[in-house]
Design a protein around this nucleic acid. Structure first.
Lengths: 226, 226
DNA sequence: TTGCATTTTCTTACGTCGTAAGGCAGCCTT
DNA sequence: AAGGCTGCCTTACGACGTAAGAAAATGCAA
């Protein structure tokens, strides 16, 4: 089947074009829509043609991480204006990373799912360690710090609840209403906290304020151990 | 095709049996081996027969979470011996949760992948809030605390690197060696930190000590805000 | 016991996925 | 001109989740 209907001098495929098409699909239709056939379609090629530029799906996903992290590292590097102390610098860096993640809502899930140790990811963390070192951290504390921050270093954190994804009519939602009297503490908490911040970005109440609270909690804790 | 070769008075299927079989498969062969056909095989039934007891695969995974969290809540409840202050109590609770997670290495990935808000998960967090409340926390601070802890409240935390999964011969490993001179901080850190703790449990260096360091950092930070 | 209705299980089949195997065209080199 | 790369395509396979409905097992009334 000739997908290329006619004319159009056909831009040759390349790893870069494949990866960028994949990212575009993930951005618009979600990570689960990133299939070999779909990427091929977007590029006016057959799915099997991609295999000349990408080893397999795993390699494709690794490549997507590379593209993402390249964007992140570039964005972060562009900022290096007002340094300040290590804490302010790391804080800014991580919040910028978060900005990038918010542009690609699939990114946290993808990064969590792979443990690939891609160079760009490693490089990002190297710079973080550099910031801490120049701030007086021992290597040992910097190491601890990376663990303590975890995925927060990259600008996101796992949210366990996300009603927006579960959708309405969910049965477990009813179960929780039924069990409400067995959840005195959460009921109390949620009823007191006016949950009226509609600016929720990633996940449930994982808005900017919550993210920054946790980030500062950790950074301040590290500061005290320095 | 008669799967039931002969005799054997056939134990009827049930949601519980299906879920337990699924957990057993996940424990032994990993989460990706949990397929409808595989579960059926383990129970001496056809894949489609499971659909009488489970709505679909999503429901199955939710059910697996339920089984897991039931085990976790039971284990946690069994401990309620020496209470101590809120910090010690929460610390113990979370480390027990971690114990359960270590028995089911697939659990963190599963919990991260779903945002289902299952009753058992909610209940677990309700108890955590209860501990904080009785320790003098405002609802507001308890809320912040849940966000700050994130998945760590359940006894695990996202590890970004996991060479054990990537396997050897990986190309990106070579790339990193090549880029080593561009990673002065990490190279320095890793060469100084004698990475000779072979007791690594989940992920890379995410052994007990690292987990507890981060946990204590957060708990101490909260303590100061109380 | 027989008959019927309900509950439980099985058979068959469809569409989607990743991808193995090999074909075919255009280009480059000798 | 001949042969070999390089890049893309065709066909096909096995795995997956699951829709639709047939078949068997079970429980209950007569």
């Amino acid at each position: 089947m000739a997908l290329q209907a006619n004319s159009e001098p056909r831009i040759p495929l390349s790893r870069d074009r494949v990866l960028r098409a994949a990212v575009a699909i993930a951005d618009s239709d979600g990570l689960e829509s990133v299939t070999m056939r779909r990427i091929g379609e977007a590029l006016g090629a057959e799915a099997m043609s991609l295999y000349y530029h990408v080893a397999n799906k795993n390699d494709l996903l690794d490549g997507i991480v590379d593209v993402l992290m390249a964007e992140l590292n570039e964005t972060v590097d562009r900022d290096d204006g007002a340094p300040g102390d290590w804490k302010a610098a790391m804080r800014r860096r991580i919040l910028i990373a978060r900005h990038v993640m918010l542009r690609h809502t699939w990114a946290p899930r993808l990064l969590e799912s792979r443990t690939a140790m891609r160079p760009a990811v490693v490089l990002y963390h190297d710079r973080l360690v550099g910031l801490m070192r120049s701030g007086g951290f021992s290597y040992d504390l910097a190491h601890h710090a990376l663990h303590a921050l975890g995925s927060r270093a990259l600008g996101f954190s796992q949210e366990l609840f996300d009603p927006s994804a579960g959708g309405a009519g969910d049965q477990s939602e009813r179960m929780i209403v039924d069990l409400a009297d067995q959840l005195p503490n959460l009921v109390g908490m949620l009823s007191e906290i006016a949950h009226d911040d509609p600016e929720s970005t990633l996940g449930w109440c994982d808005d900017q304020a919550e993210f920054e609270f946790s980030l500062d909690l950790i950074l301040d804790g590290l500061d005290r151990l320095k």
